[in-house]
Write a protein that binds this DNA or RNA. Structure first.
Lengths: 192, 192
DNA sequence: CGGGTTTAAGAACGGTCGTTCTTGACTGAA
DNA sequence: TTCAGTCAAGAACGACCGTTCTTAAACCCG
Protein backbone atom coordinates (compact mmCIF):
# COMPACT_ATOMS: atom_id res chain seq x y z
CA UNK A 1 0.00 0.00 0.00
CA UNK A 2 0.96 3.60 -0.22
CA UNK A 3 2.08 5.71 -3.11
CA UNK A 4 4.89 4.09 -5.12
CA UNK A 5 8.31 5.67 -5.39
CA UNK A 6 8.99 7.77 -8.44
CA UNK A 7 12.77 7.22 -8.37
CA UNK A 8 15.22 4.34 -8.40
CA UNK A 9 17.18 4.27 -5.19
CA UNK A 10 20.32 2.72 -6.65
CA UNK A 11 20.36 5.20 -9.50
CA UNK A 12 20.01 8.05 -7.05
CA UNK A 13 22.94 6.76 -5.01
CA UNK A 14 25.02 6.50 -8.17
CA UNK A 15 24.21 10.07 -9.11
CA UNK A 16 25.15 11.14 -5.60
CA UNK A 17 28.52 9.40 -6.02
CA UNK A 18 29.20 11.53 -9.05
CA UNK A 19 28.34 14.75 -7.27
CA UNK A 20 30.31 13.92 -4.13
CA UNK A 21 33.28 12.75 -6.20
CA UNK A 22 33.28 15.95 -8.22
CA UNK A 23 32.68 18.49 -5.47
CA UNK A 24 33.51 16.76 -2.22
CA UNK A 25 31.29 16.35 0.80
CA UNK A 26 31.26 19.93 2.03
CA UNK A 27 31.20 21.28 -1.49
CA UNK A 28 27.98 19.46 -2.36
CA UNK A 29 24.82 21.01 -0.96
CA UNK A 30 21.55 19.25 -0.36
CA UNK A 31 20.08 21.46 -3.07
CA UNK A 32 22.73 20.12 -5.45
CA UNK A 33 21.71 16.60 -4.51
CA UNK A 34 17.99 17.28 -4.86
CA UNK A 35 18.51 18.77 -8.31
CA UNK A 36 21.09 16.22 -9.49
CA UNK A 37 19.25 13.16 -8.22
CA UNK A 38 15.75 14.20 -9.15
CA UNK A 39 14.67 13.03 -5.72
CA UNK A 40 12.54 15.15 -3.52
CA UNK A 41 14.03 16.63 -0.41
CA UNK A 42 11.65 14.86 1.89
CA UNK A 43 12.21 11.51 0.20
CA UNK A 44 15.93 11.94 0.48
CA UNK A 45 15.73 12.41 4.23
CA UNK A 46 13.17 9.64 4.54
CA UNK A 47 15.41 7.13 2.78
CA UNK A 48 18.92 8.18 3.82
CA UNK A 49 18.28 10.03 7.06
CA UNK A 50 20.76 12.82 6.42
CA UNK A 51 23.25 14.19 3.95
CA UNK A 52 25.94 12.16 5.68
CA UNK A 53 23.82 9.02 5.38
CA UNK A 54 23.58 9.54 1.65
CA UNK A 55 27.31 10.17 1.47
CA UNK A 56 28.05 6.91 3.25
CA UNK A 57 25.64 5.06 0.96
CA UNK A 58 27.31 6.60 -2.08
CA UNK A 59 30.77 5.66 -0.86
CA UNK A 60 29.56 2.15 -0.03
CA UNK A 61 28.16 1.82 -3.53
CA UNK A 62 31.35 3.17 -5.05
CA UNK A 63 33.30 0.48 -3.22
CA UNK A 64 30.94 -2.32 -4.20
CA UNK A 65 30.39 -1.32 -7.81
CA UNK A 66 33.74 0.20 -8.74
CA UNK A 67 36.62 -0.40 -6.39
CA UNK A 68 36.11 -4.01 -5.33
CA UNK A 69 35.36 -5.28 -8.86
CA UNK A 70 38.41 -3.43 -10.11
CA UNK A 71 40.51 -5.04 -7.40
CA UNK A 72 39.14 -8.44 -8.35
CA UNK A 73 40.03 -7.82 -11.98
CA UNK A 74 43.53 -6.78 -11.02
CA UNK A 75 44.02 -9.97 -9.06
CA UNK A 76 43.48 -12.08 -12.19
CA UNK A 77 46.63 -10.75 -13.80
CA UNK A 78 49.44 -13.27 -14.22
CA UNK A 79 52.32 -10.87 -13.89
CA UNK A 80 53.10 -7.38 -12.74
CA UNK A 81 52.93 -5.78 -16.14
CA UNK A 82 49.49 -7.26 -16.67
CA UNK A 83 48.32 -6.00 -13.34
CA UNK A 84 49.48 -2.47 -13.91
CA UNK A 85 48.09 -2.47 -17.41
CA UNK A 86 44.72 -3.38 -16.00
CA UNK A 87 45.07 -0.84 -13.23
CA UNK A 88 45.55 1.93 -15.75
CA UNK A 89 42.87 0.60 -18.08
CA UNK A 90 40.46 0.50 -15.16
CA UNK A 91 40.61 4.26 -14.98
CA UNK A 92 37.35 4.93 -16.71
CA UNK A 93 37.33 8.64 -16.05
CA UNK A 94 33.70 8.26 -15.10
CA UNK A 95 31.86 10.68 -12.86
CA UNK A 96 32.79 8.81 -9.70
CA UNK A 97 36.49 8.45 -10.54
CA UNK A 98 38.53 9.64 -7.62
CA UNK A 99 35.74 9.35 -5.09
CA UNK A 100 37.85 7.04 -2.97
CA UNK A 101 40.79 9.43 -3.17
CA UNK A 102 38.70 12.40 -2.19
CA UNK A 103 37.04 10.52 0.64
CA UNK A 104 40.45 9.49 1.93
CA UNK A 105 41.81 13.03 1.93
CA UNK A 106 38.73 15.01 2.87
CA UNK A 107 36.43 12.99 5.12
CA UNK A 108 38.38 10.04 6.46
CA UNK A 109 40.42 12.12 8.92
CA UNK A 110 37.23 13.55 10.42
CA UNK A 111 34.74 10.68 10.08
CA UNK A 112 35.71 7.23 11.41
CA UNK A 113 32.98 5.53 9.41
CA UNK A 114 34.35 7.02 6.22
CA UNK A 115 37.84 6.03 7.31
CA UNK A 116 36.72 2.42 7.70
CA UNK A 117 35.19 2.35 4.21
CA UNK A 118 38.30 3.93 2.71
CA UNK A 119 40.53 1.44 4.46
CA UNK A 120 38.39 -1.38 3.10
CA UNK A 121 38.86 -0.15 -0.45
CA UNK A 122 42.57 0.42 -0.12
CA UNK A 123 43.09 -2.95 1.54
CA UNK A 124 41.29 -4.65 -1.35
CA UNK A 125 43.66 -3.02 -3.80
CA UNK A 126 46.65 -4.08 -1.74
CA UNK A 127 45.35 -7.61 -1.53
CA UNK A 128 44.98 -7.77 -5.30
CA UNK A 129 48.51 -6.56 -5.85
CA UNK A 130 49.82 -8.98 -3.26
CA UNK A 131 47.98 -11.85 -4.92
CA UNK A 132 49.70 -11.15 -8.21
CA UNK A 133 53.06 -10.78 -6.55
CA UNK A 134 52.54 -14.01 -4.68
CA UNK A 135 53.38 -12.36 -1.39
CA UNK A 136 51.41 -11.87 1.77
CA UNK A 137 48.96 -9.02 1.81
CA UNK A 138 49.22 -6.18 4.23
CA UNK A 139 48.03 -6.98 7.75
CA UNK A 140 44.31 -6.24 7.99
CA UNK A 141 43.54 -2.90 9.55
CA UNK A 142 47.16 -1.89 9.58
CA UNK A 143 49.00 0.46 7.26
CA UNK A 144 50.14 -0.72 3.87
CA UNK A 145 53.26 -2.76 4.17
CA UNK A 146 55.65 -4.42 1.82
CA UNK A 147 55.97 -4.21 -1.90
CA UNK A 148 52.27 -4.68 -2.55
CA UNK A 149 51.45 -1.71 -0.38
CA UNK A 150 54.03 0.38 -2.16
CA UNK A 151 52.69 -0.52 -5.57
CA UNK A 152 49.17 0.23 -4.51
CA UNK A 153 50.36 3.53 -3.13
CA UNK A 154 52.03 4.34 -6.44
CA UNK A 155 48.79 3.76 -8.32
CA UNK A 156 46.97 5.93 -5.79
CA UNK A 157 49.53 8.69 -6.17
CA UNK A 158 49.31 8.54 -9.95
CA UNK A 159 45.56 8.85 -9.82
CA UNK A 160 45.78 11.71 -7.38
CA UNK A 161 48.10 13.56 -9.74
CA UNK A 162 45.76 12.80 -12.60
CA UNK A 163 42.83 14.17 -10.64
CA UNK A 164 44.67 17.32 -9.69
CA UNK A 165 45.83 17.95 -13.24
CA UNK A 166 42.60 16.86 -14.91
CA UNK A 167 44.35 14.30 -17.14
CA UNK A 168 44.25 10.49 -17.19
CA UNK A 169 47.12 8.69 -15.47
CA UNK A 170 50.12 8.14 -17.75
CA UNK A 171 49.99 4.52 -18.86
CA UNK A 172 53.46 4.37 -20.32
CA UNK A 173 55.03 5.44 -17.06
CA UNK A 174 53.29 2.67 -15.19
CA UNK A 175 54.22 0.06 -17.75
CA UNK A 176 57.83 1.14 -17.90
CA UNK A 177 57.96 0.86 -14.18
CA UNK A 178 56.44 -2.59 -14.30
CA UNK A 179 59.22 -3.76 -16.57
CA UNK A 180 61.84 -2.43 -14.23
CA UNK A 181 60.30 -3.88 -11.16
CA UNK A 182 59.59 -7.28 -12.66
CA UNK A 183 63.35 -7.78 -12.92
CA UNK A 184 63.71 -7.45 -9.18
CA UNK A 185 61.47 -10.36 -8.36
CA UNK A 186 63.52 -13.32 -7.22
CA UNK A 187 61.37 -15.60 -9.35
CA UNK A 188 58.58 -15.28 -11.87
CA UNK A 189 55.38 -14.57 -9.96
CA UNK A 190 52.77 -17.29 -9.89
CA UNK A 191 55.19 -20.02 -11.01
CA UNK A 192 52.38 -22.56 -11.23
CA UNK B 1 51.51 56.24 10.61
CA UNK B 2 48.34 54.52 11.59
CA UNK B 3 47.62 51.99 14.27
CA UNK B 4 50.12 49.12 14.25
CA UNK B 5 49.06 45.58 13.50
CA UNK B 6 48.40 43.36 16.46
CA UNK B 7 49.18 40.12 14.58
CA UNK B 8 52.03 38.62 12.60
CA UNK B 9 50.95 38.01 9.05
CA UNK B 10 53.20 35.02 8.46
CA UNK B 11 52.10 33.39 11.67
CA UNK B 12 48.47 33.92 10.70
CA UNK B 13 49.07 32.29 7.33
CA UNK B 14 50.75 29.37 9.04
CA UNK B 15 47.80 28.91 11.38
CA UNK B 16 45.50 29.07 8.38
CA UNK B 17 47.52 26.29 6.74
CA UNK B 18 46.86 24.10 9.73
CA UNK B 19 43.15 24.73 9.67
CA UNK B 20 42.78 24.25 5.93
CA UNK B 21 44.94 21.12 6.06
CA UNK B 22 42.83 19.66 8.84
CA UNK B 23 39.35 20.55 7.61
CA UNK B 24 39.70 21.38 3.94
CA UNK B 25 38.65 24.54 2.18
CA UNK B 26 34.91 24.14 2.32
CA UNK B 27 35.09 22.66 5.79
CA UNK B 28 36.83 25.68 7.25
CA UNK B 29 34.59 28.67 7.89
CA UNK B 30 35.70 32.27 8.17
CA UNK B 31 34.65 32.11 11.81
CA UNK B 32 37.04 29.19 12.27
CA UNK B 33 39.80 31.27 10.72
CA UNK B 34 39.03 34.36 12.80
CA UNK B 35 39.10 32.31 15.99
CA UNK B 36 42.09 30.16 15.05
CA UNK B 37 44.23 32.98 13.73
CA UNK B 38 43.38 35.58 16.33
CA UNK B 39 42.99 38.03 13.48
CA UNK B 40 39.98 40.25 13.22
CA UNK B 41 37.51 39.65 10.45
CA UNK B 42 38.03 43.04 8.90
CA UNK B 43 41.81 42.74 9.00
CA UNK B 44 41.60 39.36 7.34
CA UNK B 45 39.65 40.76 4.43
CA UNK B 46 41.86 43.86 4.32
CA UNK B 47 45.02 41.78 4.00
CA UNK B 48 43.91 38.74 2.02
CA UNK B 49 40.88 40.03 0.17
CA UNK B 50 38.78 36.90 0.61
CA UNK B 51 38.72 33.44 2.12
CA UNK B 52 40.09 32.10 -1.14
CA UNK B 53 42.91 34.65 -1.06
CA UNK B 54 43.91 33.44 2.38
CA UNK B 55 43.71 29.84 1.18
CA UNK B 56 46.01 30.57 -1.73
CA UNK B 57 48.44 32.37 0.59
CA UNK B 58 48.38 29.44 2.98
CA UNK B 59 49.04 26.95 0.19
CA UNK B 60 51.78 29.16 -1.20
CA UNK B 61 53.39 29.28 2.23
CA UNK B 62 53.03 25.54 2.64
CA UNK B 63 54.91 25.06 -0.61
CA UNK B 64 57.66 27.53 0.24
CA UNK B 65 58.16 26.52 3.86
CA UNK B 66 57.44 22.81 3.76
CA UNK B 67 57.28 21.15 0.37
CA UNK B 68 60.09 22.85 -1.53
CA UNK B 69 62.61 22.60 1.35
CA UNK B 70 61.70 18.96 1.75
CA UNK B 71 62.23 18.40 -1.95
CA UNK B 72 65.61 20.12 -1.75
CA UNK B 73 66.60 17.89 1.15
CA UNK B 74 65.54 14.81 -0.76
CA UNK B 75 67.69 15.83 -3.70
CA UNK B 76 70.84 15.75 -1.57
CA UNK B 77 70.53 12.01 -1.05
CA UNK B 78 73.23 9.94 -2.74
CA UNK B 79 71.14 6.86 -3.35
CA UNK B 80 67.59 5.68 -3.45
CA UNK B 81 67.52 4.32 0.07
CA UNK B 82 68.80 7.61 1.42
CA UNK B 83 66.16 9.51 -0.51
CA UNK B 84 63.30 7.41 0.71
CA UNK B 85 64.63 7.48 4.25
CA UNK B 86 64.58 11.24 4.12
CA UNK B 87 61.17 11.25 2.53
CA UNK B 88 59.73 9.29 5.42
CA UNK B 89 61.68 11.25 8.04
CA UNK B 90 60.35 14.47 6.51
CA UNK B 91 56.86 13.48 7.58
CA UNK B 92 56.67 15.70 10.62
CA UNK B 93 53.04 15.01 11.33
CA UNK B 94 52.65 18.72 11.91
CA UNK B 95 49.39 20.57 11.57
CA UNK B 96 49.91 21.28 7.89
CA UNK B 97 50.86 17.71 6.94
CA UNK B 98 48.80 16.61 4.01
CA UNK B 99 47.78 20.10 2.95
CA UNK B 100 49.22 19.48 -0.50
CA UNK B 101 47.36 16.18 -0.74
CA UNK B 102 44.08 17.70 0.30
CA UNK B 103 44.49 20.64 -2.04
CA UNK B 104 45.21 18.25 -4.90
CA UNK B 105 42.11 16.18 -4.26
CA UNK B 106 39.65 18.82 -3.12
CA UNK B 107 40.38 22.17 -4.73
CA UNK B 108 42.71 21.57 -7.68
CA UNK B 109 39.97 20.10 -9.90
CA UNK B 110 37.80 23.19 -9.37
CA UNK B 111 40.35 26.00 -9.02
CA UNK B 112 43.04 26.40 -11.71
CA UNK B 113 45.17 28.59 -9.47
CA UNK B 114 45.22 25.87 -6.82
CA UNK B 115 45.97 23.32 -9.52
CA UNK B 116 49.01 25.34 -10.61
CA UNK B 117 50.35 25.51 -7.05
CA UNK B 118 49.77 21.80 -6.54
CA UNK B 119 51.52 20.98 -9.78
CA UNK B 120 54.46 23.12 -8.70
CA UNK B 121 54.82 21.17 -5.48
CA UNK B 122 54.47 17.77 -7.12
CA UNK B 123 56.91 18.69 -9.87
CA UNK B 124 59.48 19.72 -7.27
CA UNK B 125 59.20 16.32 -5.63
CA UNK B 126 59.56 14.58 -8.97
CA UNK B 127 62.59 16.68 -9.81
CA UNK B 128 64.23 15.74 -6.52
CA UNK B 129 63.64 12.05 -7.11
CA UNK B 130 64.90 12.35 -10.66
CA UNK B 131 68.04 14.12 -9.49
CA UNK B 132 68.89 11.26 -7.18
CA UNK B 133 68.16 8.70 -9.84
CA UNK B 134 70.29 10.58 -12.31
CA UNK B 135 67.50 10.58 -14.88
CA UNK B 136 65.65 13.36 -16.57
CA UNK B 137 62.82 14.93 -14.64
CA UNK B 138 59.27 14.83 -15.79
CA UNK B 139 58.46 17.31 -18.57
CA UNK B 140 57.37 20.59 -16.99
CA UNK B 141 53.65 21.02 -16.84
CA UNK B 142 53.00 17.51 -18.01
CA UNK B 143 51.97 14.49 -16.01
CA UNK B 144 54.52 12.55 -14.05
CA UNK B 145 56.50 10.28 -16.29
CA UNK B 146 59.15 7.67 -15.80
CA UNK B 147 60.52 6.09 -12.71
CA UNK B 148 60.90 9.35 -10.84
CA UNK B 149 57.24 10.13 -11.30
CA UNK B 150 56.29 6.66 -10.13
CA UNK B 151 58.40 6.92 -7.02
CA UNK B 152 56.99 10.31 -6.21
CA UNK B 153 53.52 8.92 -6.72
CA UNK B 154 54.29 6.07 -4.33
CA UNK B 155 55.33 8.52 -1.63
CA UNK B 156 52.17 10.51 -2.27
CA UNK B 157 50.04 7.40 -2.04
CA UNK B 158 51.70 6.32 1.19
CA UNK B 159 51.05 9.69 2.73
CA UNK B 160 47.47 9.66 1.57
CA UNK B 161 46.94 6.31 3.24
CA UNK B 162 48.61 7.64 6.35
CA UNK B 163 46.32 10.65 6.35
CA UNK B 164 43.22 8.56 5.90
CA UNK B 165 44.21 6.14 8.65
CA UNK B 166 45.63 8.75 11.00
CA UNK B 167 48.99 7.00 11.29
CA UNK B 168 52.46 7.95 10.05
CA UNK B 169 53.62 6.36 6.80
CA UNK B 170 55.30 2.96 7.31
CA UNK B 171 59.03 3.55 7.12
CA UNK B 172 60.05 -0.08 6.86
CA UNK B 173 57.92 -0.62 3.80
CA UNK B 174 59.49 2.29 2.01
CA UNK B 175 63.00 1.18 2.89
CA UNK B 176 62.39 -2.40 1.89
CA UNK B 177 61.12 -1.16 -1.40
CA UNK B 178 64.21 0.98 -1.86
CA UNK B 179 66.42 -2.06 -1.51
CA UNK B 180 64.44 -3.93 -4.13
CA UNK B 181 64.38 -1.14 -6.58
CA UNK B 182 68.03 -0.21 -6.19
CA UNK B 183 68.90 -3.59 -7.69
CA UNK B 184 67.08 -2.66 -10.89
CA UNK B 185 69.19 0.36 -11.64
CA UNK B 186 71.59 -0.34 -14.49
CA UNK B 187 74.35 1.47 -12.62
CA UNK B 188 74.90 3.08 -9.26
CA UNK B 189 73.15 6.44 -9.29
CA UNK B 190 75.30 9.53 -9.24
CA UNK B 191 78.49 7.72 -10.39
CA UNK B 192 80.59 10.87 -9.98
C1' DC C 1 48.11 68.70 21.62
C1' DG C 2 45.10 68.08 17.39
C1' DG C 3 44.74 66.24 12.53
C1' DG C 4 45.48 62.15 9.44
C1' DT C 5 45.72 57.44 8.83
C1' DT C 6 45.58 52.63 9.74
C1' DT C 7 43.89 48.91 12.44
C1' DA C 8 40.69 46.58 15.95
C1' DA C 9 36.14 45.59 17.32
C1' DG C 10 31.83 43.80 16.49
C1' DA C 11 27.27 44.33 14.74
C1' DA C 12 24.86 43.48 10.57
C1' DC C 13 24.00 42.21 5.64
C1' DG C 14 21.66 39.02 2.21
C1' DG C 15 22.20 34.42 0.95
C1' DT C 16 22.61 29.60 1.57
C1' DC C 17 23.18 25.73 4.73
C1' DG C 18 21.00 21.11 6.47
C1' DT C 19 16.72 19.87 8.18
C1' DT C 20 11.68 19.68 9.15
C1' DC C 21 6.80 20.53 8.48
C1' DT C 22 2.39 20.86 6.09
C1' DT C 23 -0.44 19.77 2.45
C1' DG C 24 -2.03 17.10 -1.36
C1' DA C 25 -1.43 13.02 -4.74
C1' DC C 26 -1.41 8.26 -5.32
C1' DT C 27 -1.73 3.41 -3.79
C1' DG C 28 -3.81 -1.46 -2.06
C1' DA C 29 -7.26 -3.22 0.91
C1' DA C 30 -11.84 -3.15 3.16
C1' DT D 1 -15.95 4.38 -1.95
C1' DT D 2 -13.87 5.13 2.09
C1' DC D 3 -9.67 4.31 4.82
C1' DA D 4 -5.01 3.96 6.16
C1' DG D 5 -0.49 4.44 4.55
C1' DT D 6 3.41 6.04 1.66
C1' DC D 7 5.39 9.37 -1.24
C1' DA D 8 5.77 14.01 -3.78
C1' DA D 9 5.74 18.98 -3.60
C1' DG D 10 7.35 22.97 -1.76
C1' DA D 11 7.26 26.37 1.81
C1' DA D 12 9.57 27.33 6.04
C1' DC D 13 12.79 26.85 9.96
C1' DG D 14 16.85 28.49 12.71
C1' DA D 15 21.70 28.44 12.02
C1' DC D 16 25.58 29.49 9.67
C1' DC D 17 27.89 31.11 5.35
C1' DG D 18 31.23 34.79 3.27
C1' DT D 19 31.36 39.56 3.17
C1' DT D 20 30.75 44.53 4.42
C1' DC D 21 29.82 48.49 7.30
C1' DT D 22 30.24 51.63 11.30
C1' DT D 23 32.57 53.20 15.14
C1' DA D 24 36.29 53.42 18.43
C1' DA D 25 41.26 52.88 19.47
C1' DA D 26 46.13 53.46 18.57
C1' DC D 27 49.85 55.30 16.14
C1' DC D 28 52.98 59.21 13.38
C1' DC D 29 53.51 63.82 12.30
C1' DG D 30 53.27 68.84 12.78
Amino acid sequence: MGRPRAFDEDEAVRAASGLFAAQGYEGTSVDDLVNGLGVHRGSLYKVFGSKRGLYLAALRRHLDQEVLPTAAALATATDLAGLLTRAVAAYDGGPAAGFLLLAAAERAPADPEVAALVEEGLAALDTAVAAVLGTAAAPPGGPADGLAGILGAAVLGLRLRARAAGTPPPAEAVLGFAGRLAATLPQPPRPA
